[in-house]
Simulated assay, not measured.
Amino acid sequence: MSLAEIACPIPDIAPADMDGAIAAARAAVGLPVGSRVVAAMSGGVDSTVVAGLLHKAGYDVVGVTLQLYDHGAALKKKGACCAGQDIHDARLAAETLGIPHYVLDYESRFRDAVIDQFADSYLRGHTPVPCIRCNQTVKFRDLLDVARDLGAAAMATGHYVRRAEAGGRVQMRKAIDHSRDQSYFLFATTPAQLDYLRFPLADLEKPQVRGVAAELGLRIAAKPDSQDICFVPSGDYRTLIDKLRPQGRQAGQIVHMDGRVLGAHEGVTDYTIGQRRGLNVAVGEPLFVTKLEPETRRVVVGPREALLTASLVLEETNWLGDEASMEAAADAQAPVLARVRSTRQPSPARLARGDDGVRVVFDLGEEGVAPGQACALYDPADPDRLLGGGFIRETTPVV
Results as ranks from 00 to 15, higher is better:
A175M: 00
A175D: 00
I176M: 01
D177T: 09
D177Q: 06
D177K: 09
D177F: 08
H178T: 15
H178E: 14
H178P: 08
S179L: 13
S179G: 15
S179N: 13
R180A: 14
D181E: 03
Q182F: 05
S183I: 07
Y184E: 05
Y184I: 07
Y184H: 07
Y184R: 01
F185L: 13
F185C: 12
L186Q: 05
L186D: 00
L186M: 12
F187L: 15
A188V: 05
T189I: 14
T189R: 02
T190Q: 12
T190F: 11
T190N: 05
T190W: 08
A192T: 14
Q193I: 05
Q193N: 01
Q193T: 00
L194R: 00
L194D: 01
L194P: 01
L194E: 00
L194A: 10
D195I: 11
Y196S: 04
Y196L: 09
L197S: 03
R198Y: 12
R198W: 12
F199D: 00
F199A: 10
F199E: 02
P200V: 10
P200E: 00
L201I: 10
L201Y: 12
L201P: 06
A202E: 08
A202C: 14
E205S: 12
E205L: 00
E205P: 01
K206L: 06
K206E: 00
K206M: 02
K206P: 03
P207A: 05
Q208E: 14
Q208P: 02
Q208I: 00
Q208R: 04
Q208A: 14
Q208M: 08
V209T: 07
V209H: 03
R210A: 02
V212G: 04
V212D: 01
V212N: 04
V212T: 02
A213E: 12
A213M: 15
A214G: 09
A214Y: 08
